[in-house]
Write a protein that binds this DNA or RNA. Structure first.
Lengths: 202, 202
DNA sequence: TAAGATAGTAATAGATTACTTACTTTGTGG
DNA sequence: CCACAAAGTAAGTAATCTATTACTATCTTA
């Protein structure tokens, strides 16, 4: 770890703050991610955060931006690295699992934001991220059908709900076991079952 | 709704408290379920709760007991209502979805407890509940194999992770849409894909 | 029906939270 | 090189949360 200099330019400090939140989310309940905890984790006093963010929600907003940008970039890259659409779906799934394994706090943050009852900015961003994610999958599933890689009668919406649920389920299992590597290990077997399910004709 | 009398015997008051928490969880973030919110929801002052529970975690513990008892009873009943083990798995899944549709706060509470970093009593109870749930499924999947209803080479652990993930995914979707009925509607289609996945030979 | 036990209220203590303010340190451009 | 802006600290404030305390209302039963 690089020994942080005390003073950082504003944009770097903001970036460090976002990383601190992502790291904290890996081991803490979202409700335990207080501004004090964030500040302590980056070696700065609590008040310093408000030099760079107007309030706590602005921090969470920046985190959601970080997540959306990185996650979508990763899955897009994975999807474009293969030719067939069904392989793209699998690559996307694996890239997502890989991303979550590297940043186990991310699904926690996402789920935590979705749970909030008020319609906050970070919550709306979480919803937008998931909508974009679904759109990409919808496109790929459509391609699969036209290329004959998946049966015409397949329920695409159900397939996508299922695929996202698989990741959620893997996260939950790794949460139970307290071991994120479990996700990476179990992902292929779980996806294999899923794939047989969507490929099967009737 | 029955107009509550002011004074209730201790065990009834405890039962009412648990119900209040379950109801609140349906519309509130777990972190927003404060003792004040619970008390207000049951028409009593905040301090009154501590006449019946030593602390807040004891309330959550009682909630987890309530959930574990009811959920397991429901899925067990469903599983025993049919003869073939594969039908039992489907019945169990549907009963679970039905239960969650009736009590949308339950998965929130469960997930919320699992997220806590400290090893609290209610967290341990959530873990126990999920372990018991898995055990029941393990048994059914084993039966399916011996009766030839599912292929011998099927990965049971992956299948169970997937099944639990499906429910989690449905919950997440209904959370996004803000409509619990969505779960009940989408469950059959999603399970159909799952079933084809586990039944397919290779 | 009076007395003791039970269940409630109202007020508040003590801890913790997000956020502010007054001041200090550090980096940088004219 | 030094004035000034940017970045950080230390010490607060107001709000809110769990839990306690002192007191009161309400049941129960001898």
């Amino acid at each position: 770890m690089v020994p942080h200099p005390k003073h950082l330019p504003a944009d770097e400090r903001r970036a460090v703050t976002v990383e601190a939140v992502v790291e904290l989310a890996a081991e803490k309940n979202p409700s335990e991610i207080t501004t004090t905890a964030i500040a302590k984790h980056m070696g700065v006093t609590q008040g310093a955060l408000f030099k760079h963010f107007p309030n706590k929600d602005a921090i969470l907003q920046a985190v959601m931006e970080w997540v959306a940008k990185r996650l979508l970039a990763r899955v897009d890259k994975a999807a474009h690295s293969v030719s067939s659409p069904i392989a793209a779906i699998e690559a996307m799934f694996m890239a997502h699992v890989e991303f979550v394994t590297e940043h186990p706090g991310v699904p926690r943050m996402l789920f935590g934001e979705l749970q909030r009852s008020e319609q906050t900015v970070p919550k709306r961003m979480a919803q937008t991220l998931l909508r974009r994610y679904r759109e990409r999958l919808q496109h790929l599933f459509g391609e699969c059908k036209t290329k004959g890689e998946l049966p015409e009668m397949l329920d695409i919406d159900a397939s996508i709900t299922l695929l996202i649920g698989i990741i959620q389920g893997l996260v939950m299992q790794s949460l139970l076991a307290g071991d994120v590597e479990l996700m990476r290990r179990d992902a292929p077997g779980v996806f294999a079952i899923y794939r047989r399910g969507i490929e099967a004709e009737k």
